[in-house]
Design a binder for these strands. Structure first.
Lengths: 212, 212
DNA sequence: TTTTGCATTAACAAAATTGTTAGACAATTC
DNA sequence: GAATTGTCTAACAATTTTGTTAATGCAAAA
C-alpha cells in the first residue's frame, strides 16, 4: 500500500467531493475536478464509487443527516424554562449553521432538483419533528397560560428562527458589498447578527403590556 | 414571416430560457431543452444568441434588475409615518417575492458561482441603496428620539425583513412536508406568514415598557 | 425580376464529461 | 514461492452537450 491508512484515497475523494458538490452543486461539479482536488486519477474515482451519482448520494446522505441534527438543535434544552429554552435554541441553531454555512444552499437546491430524493429525509424526520413540535407547543401553551409569554404557534416560530439564522449565511456574499462597514469584519458581524436574531425572537414571544 | 409579431421566436426562446435557468441554474440548464420548450430547433437558439453564456447573460441582466426593484420595495412609502412606512415595506417586499418566488435562489446561486458577475449589480445599486439607508436611518433616529419606536440599525432591520420574507419561499418545498396542515393550503399559509413577519418586525421596533 | 438579407433547417463537427478495460504492481494468503 | 486479491494507471470508448455550416426558402427592396 502506498498510503499509510487504509482507505485513505477513498476518504480523500469523499472530502474533495463534499467540497465540490457543496459549492458547485451536482450539475456544476466535475468528476475530473473532484479527482484532481483529491490528488488521484479520475479512473480512481470511478473505481471506488462507480458513478458520479453514487458518489453524490454518499454526500447527500451525510449532509441530510447533518441537516436533521440542526432541526434538533433548534429545539433547545428541555430542562430549561421555556423562554430560556427557546433562546438557547436560537443560539445553538445559529452556531450550527455557522459551522455548516454551505449546507442550507445545498439542501435547498437539492430539494428543488430532486424532490423524490428528499422524501427519504422527510420520512426520516417528519414524525420525530412532529413529536417535538407538540411537546414544545404544550410548554408554550402552559407558559402563555401563566402570562409568562405570548401564545404563539411553535411552527411559525421555528420558521422565523430558521429564516433569520440561515438567511444570514445564505445571503452573506450578496449583502456584504451593500452593507458598508457593518459586515466588513465577518466575525464581529456574525456576533451582532446572532444577538439581533435572539432579540427579535425574544420580542416576538414576550408578553406585551399593550397588545397590537 | 411565419410568426405574426417580429421577433416572436426570439421572445419565445427568452421566455423558455428564463424558465430553464431559474429552475435548473446555469449548469443544469440545457440549450436543447430550452429550444424544445420554446418550440424551435436548437440551431435557432444559437442563431439568435450565439452561445449559452450570452443567452444566460440576457436573463441575468433582467433578473438582477428585477432584484434591485425588490430592494426599493422594502424601503416603503416615504410619505408615511416611519412606523407605517416600515410595515408597508415589509408587506410590499413580501408581495414582491411572492410574485418572483424563484428569484432569490437564482441570485444566491449566481452570486456564489460567479461573484465577478455580481460586482456589476452591486456597483449599480450600492450607492443608491446607501443613500436610502441613510435617509431612513435619519427618520428612525428622529422617531426614536420622540419615543415613538426603538432605536435600531436600519441595515440590521432590512436583513431581518429580507430573511423572513425570502426564506419563506426559499424553504417552502423543504418545510411543507414537515409542517402538517399549517402549510397544506399555500395561499392561506402565505397570508399567515406575511402577517407573522409583519408582527415580528413590528415588535422588534416598538418601544418596550420594560427594556430587555 | 433580380437581388439582398434575414430566418430556418438538417446535418455535421468539436469539445467536454463520464464511464470502461486491460493490465501492472504490490501485498496478503496458502 | 505461487496464487490470489485489491489498488492503481493509462489509454480508450461512449455519451452528452454545445456550437457551426451549408443549403433553402421567403419577403421586401431595387
Amino acid at each position: 500500500m502506498e498510503n499509510k491508512e487504509k482507505g485513505s484515497k477513498e476518504k480523500q475523494i469523499l472530502a474533495a467531493a463534499e467540497q465540490e458538490f457543496l459549492t458547485m452543486g451536482y450539475d456544476g461539479a466535475r468528476t475530473t475536478s473532484i479527482a484532481r482536488r483529491a490528488g488521484v486519477t479520475h479512473a480512481m474515482l470511478h473505481y471506488y464509487f462507480r458513478t458520479k451519482e453514487q458518489l453524490f448520494e454518499r454526500i447527500v446522505d451525510e449532509k441530510f443527516s447533518t441537516m436533521s441534527h440542526s432541526m434538533f438543535a433548534i429545539m433547545g434544552d428541555p430542562s430549561l424554562p421555556v423562554l430560556e429554552r427557546i433562546i438557547g435554541g436560537v443560539e445553538s441553531h445559529f452556531d450550527f449553521v455557522a459551522e455548516n454555512p454551505l449546507l442550507p444552499r445545498f439542501v435547498i437546491n437539492e430539494i428543488v432538483a430532486r424532490p423524490e430524493h428528499c422524501d427519504i429525509l422527510h420520512k426520516r424526520i417528519a414524525h420525530v419533528v412532529g413529536a417535538l413540535y407538540r411537546e414544545l407547543q404544550l410548554e408554550i401553551d402552559r407558559a402563555a397560560e401563566n402570562g409568562e409569554m405570548e401564545r404563539v404557534d411553535v411552527r411559525m416560530l421555528f420558521i422565523s428562527i430558521m429564516s433569520m439564522n440561515i438567511f444570514t449565511f445564505l445571503a452573506y456574499p450578496f449583502m456584504e458589498p451593500l452593507m458598508g462597514e457593518l459586515m466588513a469584519d465577518r466575525e464581529q458581524f456574525l456576533k451582532k447578527r446572532k444577538a439581533e436574531n435572539v432579540e427579535t425572537i425574544l420580542r416576538r414571544i414576550k408578553k406585551q403590556k399593550d397588545a397590537v
